[in-house]
Design a protein around this nucleic acid. Structure first.
Lengths: 329, 329
DNA sequence: CTGAAAGCGCTTACAG
DNA sequence: CTGAAAGCGCTTACAG
């Protein structure tokens, strides 16, 4: 015996497919008799009927699926909570939210979303133009560059605010000459340059000299060299805002080997609030993001794009970032 | 103008839908004239025809989609490479691989995969029984507990081997009294207990005393207390195998505050080879997993389950784990 | 209050 | 070598 269809339910209950559909979709305005209604529900349950999403999608022309396309971002850990929340809030609205991971535009992505026929595609990076075109042609809405600064309204998250908040905190602690640890990695381009820009602006706004920027890689040598540049040159800095916690922790380790005391000789602030941040000694001051709020905000944007319903209500950016002060500042 | 269908292509090319389908699916055994073939391809291309996955799925009874269900695992970062590889190798076989993230079994998952109608469901955790039942009823194959030790053949990854490898390395460095840092967190239950078991067995096989196990949490206090237990009690240990790098790094920090020199007073080995592991001072010895190999291995398992084709060729577990020796052992 | 019928886009036996 | 027709499972205007 194959899968149970709505026709099976109809036959078994002695009604028409139409009635089954009406009952199961709650189209009660059609005025189904209470008894018929009960009978259908009972029968469907007894037969273990599960409606075919494909059948429905075929008829409706589009699946109830939100497809998120994730490029090779180095933020996996932080996104986990985000994914859970986005999935849950979209599920409430009757949509499934699934993720497609890809590195290089290898096989055209079209090959993939063809199989899904999503109601919308949410691209966390940017899609190859050919894919964007195909989507448009198929009439599937595309939400692109979710993480980009210019789209901060969608998520309520503006990367520039992150850098700004770091600098403001350091300034409040009395620091005037501030270093910025940038990461020289194209994968981070949606994040690092905007944060640096925010830090630069904050310095300007506060009347501080421009931050002393050093490009690092993830290596001890690179971190050591950076520490030397910040502390030994002319105009040494007294505090460093790091692009993220990982970089900050590498810098922290380098300070130890160079006998530079944190935070007395050099203050340090990261971003992300990684689990390891609170375990370091001294524990790392950092900036945490409330990804739950971001996900909820994105949900409203997505739904409004699908339904052309009410426009999304933008989240309050201020509420999303939190300074987590520990022992390095 | 709405989406371009195969009927549009047929009309425009002056052939039948049948011919269009044959050409586009490479059913050349039907002997399509070369000229007709060329014409169809050219027309499809000109109109920007993209076949509807839903139409095909409807006809075939199942979508060309592999749905991976991911519970709230704390291994996100490590899975990233895995996802990319799995996605790429399944794409080669003509399947799209998408991920569904969920925390608690909130909404029945059925609600979701209904929308997708996948060819197979791959559950990284275990599914609620009701969902498993519904899947079976719908005739959708389910691959459950991919990460569980008893299914090591699917992925080629046996968590027990991880603990064993740690102990073997420490023993080779001359250590006889070994501690094990376990993590007291249900989210880690697919990983931590098996690794500990492997460590225990390795100790037995090597004629060493059983490992001195301490349950930790992710906190400095917890790590400090553990270090004290290992180093101050009767029968102090000379080396610790930590469940993962994060725990190992917390222990490393605690050693520093307690003036315990690593590796001379206490050797330390982690698991995961996190980016931060090589940035710590001293850099952490750890065990890396080749997730690419695991993903390839899983692909063959998945495809064999879909096609009932040739059984999967299991990967060689030995090839997947690599000892990364650095400065803590 | 309920049902017969059409149609979403595709593939494939079958007929020519 | 090519096409007309059926049917996958659903929803919904329309008819009664």
């Amino acid at each position: 015996m194959g899968r149970v269809t709505s026709r099976d339910v109809a036959r078994e209950a002695g009604v028409s497919q139409t009635t089954v559909s009406f009952v199961l979709n709650g189209k009660d305005e059609h005025g189904i008799a209470a008894e018929t209604r009960r009978l259908v529900l009972e029968t469907a349950d007894r037969l273990g009927y599960v409606p075919s999403g494909i059948g429905r999608a075929m008829r409706k022309g589009r699946g109830q699926v939100v497809l998120c396309v994730i490029p090779d971002l180095p933020v996996a850990e932080a996104m986990e909570q985000f994914k859970l929340t986005l999935g849950a809030s979209l599920a409430e609205a009757g949509y499934a939210c699934v993720y497609l991971h890809h590195a290089k535009p290898t096989v055209p992505l079209a090959q993939t979303w063809q199989h899904i026929q999503p109601a919308i595609v949410v691209a966390f990076g940017s899609l190859p133009p050919s894919d964007a075109r195909t989507l448009k042609q198929a009439g599937i809405p595309l939400l692109e560059g979710v993480l980009a600064p210019e789209n901060a309204r969608m998520t309520g998250l503006n990367q520039e605010d992150v850098g700004r908040l770091q600098v403001e905190h350091l300034a409040a602690r009395g620091h005037r000459r501030i270093g910025f640890a940038a990461l020289d990695d194209p994968r981070e381009s949606p994040f690092c340059p905007p944060r640096l820009k925010g830090a630069r602006r904050a310095c300007r706004d506060l009347g501080l000299p421009a931050p002393k920027v050093v490009d690092l890689r993830y290596s001890q040598e690179s971190a050591s060299a950076a520490v030397t540049k910040w502390t030994r040159g002319t105009n040494p800095v007294t505090a460093v805002a790091a692009f993220n916690d990982l970089l900050a922790l590498a810098i922290l380790a380098s300070c130890r080997t160079q006998d530079i005391t944190v935070p007395d000789d050099l203050a340090l602030i990261g971003v992300d609030d990684l689990p390891i941040a609170s375990l370091a000694v001294p524990a790392l001051t950092t900036i945490a993001m409330d990804l739950t709020a971001i996900a909820v905000s994105l949900t409203t944007t997505v739904l409004s794009l699908i339904d052309k319903g009410a426009p999304a209500t933008p989240a309050d950016p201020a509420a999303i970032l939190t300074l987590v002060q520990r022992d390095t500042t």
